[in-house]
C-alpha cells in the first residue's frame, strides 16, 4: 500500500497532529515503507482463525455499585493548563 500526501494529511487530521505540507511527502514515503513491510501478513491464510484482542483468559471483573471516588476537584484540575472557576477550559467551540 502506497500512501499519498492527501491520505497522510487526512489521517493526521483524524489524529489531530499538525503536519506541515513540506513534511507530507517524506512522511508518506516512510509510512508507505512501513505498510509495505507489514503487508507480508497477506501471505498467511487466516481463514477461520479467531481474532485475538488480548491474552487474559478470565471473566471480566466487575465492581460493586458503590461511590468510592470523586470529590477530588483539586487533584483533577491540578495539572490543567488553564483552569477557571472549577472548570477545564479550551478555546471557544462554536456549535
Amino acid at each position: 500500500m502506497s500512501l499519498d500526501k492527501a491520505t497522510v494529511a487526512h489521517i493526521a487530521t483524524l489524529a489531530r497532529i499538525k503536519i506541515p505540507d513540506s513534511d507530507l511527502e517524506h512522511l508518506a514515503g516512510e509510512l508507505s515503507q512501513i505498510l509495505g513491510w507489514i503487508e507480508q501478513l497477506g501471505e498467511v491464510d487466516t481463514t477461520g482463525v479467531e481474532p485475538m484482542t488480548g491474552v487474559v483468559q478470565m471473566d471480566l471483573p466487575r465492581r460493586a455499585d458503590v461511590v468510592t471516588d470523586g470529590n477530588i476537584r483539586d487533584k483533577v484540575l491540578a495539572n490543567a493548563p488553564e483552569p477557571a472557576h472549577g472548570f477545564f477550559t479550551v478555546p471557544k467551540v462554536v456549535e
Binding site: 500512501l3 491520505t7 497522510v8 489521517i11 493526521a12 483524524l14 489524529a15 497532529i17 512522511l27 516512510e30 509510512l31 512501513i34 505498510l35 507489514i38 501478513l41 497477506g42 498467511v44 487466516t46 482463525v49 479467531e50 481474532p51 485475538m52 484482542t53
Partner: peptide, 28 residues
Amino acid sequence: RRVLIGTYVLSAGYYDAYYLKAQRLRSL
C-alpha cells in the same frame, strides 16, 4: 509516526485488512 500508522490501520476501509488480520495472526 506510530500514531499515524495506528490511526491508518484502524480507519474505515483498512480495519479488516490490517487490524483484524493482525489479530488473527496474533492468534496463530
